[in-house]
Amino acid sequence: MSSTTSPTPQPPQIQCTPREVESHLATGELRRLRRSTYIPADPDVPDFTTHRTTRETLLRAVRNERLDGVVALETAALLHRGRTLYEPATVHLVVSWNAAGLKRGSRRRPPNRPTSRELGPRDHRRALGTRPFVRHRYDLADSDVVDLDGLRVTSLERTAEDCARFLPPDRALAVVDSLFAIVAGAGERPWDRRDEINARAARFRQALLTRLDARPRERGVRRARAVVMAATPWSQSVWETEARRLCLIGGITPPEPQMPVRTAAGTFYADLGWWIVRLVLEIDGLIKYLEDADAVLAAQCWRQAAMEGAGIHVERTTPAEVADGEAFLARLRRILPLTLCEEKPVAALRTRSESRRQQGAQW
């Protein structure tokens, strides 16, 4: 499966002499990404904007310099119009195997930079996370590579498989949910085509499970199966996805995404809901308030009043509260009946830190 995308907005070009570049670096006006690749440095710009600019600049370098590799993982998902839990700055590339082994470049390491052997495991992971390019070496079939905007990119199906296998579960499910929505065609007014969307999603799920069945005992397959089985085309934001994942790992019956609520004012579709207890959960991100906050708040109150008039209790939360996983789960356990909080947790969807906390709680 493949996808098309419109040309990506290009970051601003940096045209300076080497002496000017050094001056701008010293004053903090420029930030170096890699050799001969720089972006403007502005401390007032939000991190997600800086990350996006960084990623687009690096992708331009891949395209213009014809760097070896196929764009993969979260970078590929974004090129397929998918979503990610956090805005990534790193570009992931799958490169060909080098039979002669990797050869380090001739560049000298800065004198204040420790070697990899001197770093502990955690610092080593952090250092790897700051690399502009992360290169992976594994086999790709020709059918797993498509061309998007002049870039070689893993196909949508292969991107979903790789993200499910190799990303932490929270990031993996956010990406895979969004790719399910793309494959199923859950765009404008998806509720009018529920059966069609569910059928397409079921076929995509089976295709991914078939791929995973062909990789017995390979790394990440168990986690990937859990991600694929939990994925849905109905999640309309990454924080709705994360709320569902937290329920799954916390032993709470997962809510229905885009739950229909019929009211006197019409049918509304709640972000998440438990129809059995007539409760919905709305996740209010800040982005919806940027253009006309008063109008959005008025519509929000009218919608909530209509649902409450139909006998539905509405709880509201924010992405920041969902991101604080333990507190979010504690709140749900307070408002949901005990019968909905006795499910078997899906341990494969826990992140590494969540697994450590769970083991500590058992001790």
Score class of each variant (00 low, 15 high):
L208V: 11
E74Q: 14
D294G: 11
G69F: 03
P168G: 10
L332A: 02
R356Q: 14
R131Y: 09
G325K: 00
H80L: 01
R352Y: 13
D139W: 07
L30Y: 03
R278V: 05
D213N: 14
A141F: 05
N98A: 13
T53W: 00
V322W: 02
A41Q: 12
L340R: 02
R117V: 10
A265L: 10
S6V: 10
P260A: 10
L151M: 09
A99E: 13
G187R: 10
G325N: 05
P88F: 06
A306W: 04
R60A: 12
P254L: 02
Q10H: 06
R193W: 02
T154Y: 03
P46S: 08
L179G: 03
P254G: 08
E22N: 15
R55G: 06
P46G: 11
A306E: 07
N198I: 06
L286D: 14
D44K: 10
R135P: 09
E56D: 15
Q206F: 03
A270R: 04
N64A: 13
W275M: 04
A323E: 12
T54F: 02
Q15P: 00
R303H: 02
E315M: 08
L279V: 09
E354K: 01
C301D: 13
W274L: 01
T267A: 03
P7V: 11
D147I: 07
R117K: 09
A361R: 13
R225V: 15
G120D: 15
A199E: 15
E308T: 13
L279E: 01
V45M: 14
H313K: 11
G101R: 06
R350C: 15
A348R: 09
S355A: 15
R225W: 06
D47Y: 03
V71L: 01
T8P: 01
P7H: 08
R83K: 10
K344G: 04
R262G: 06
A323V: 06
R352E: 15
R211E: 13
L209K: 03
M1Q: 07
R135L: 13
A77T: 08
M259I: 13
R126L: 14
E342P: 00
L349D: 05
F180R: 00
D195N: 11
T27F: 00
R223T: 15
E282P: 05
Q15W: 02
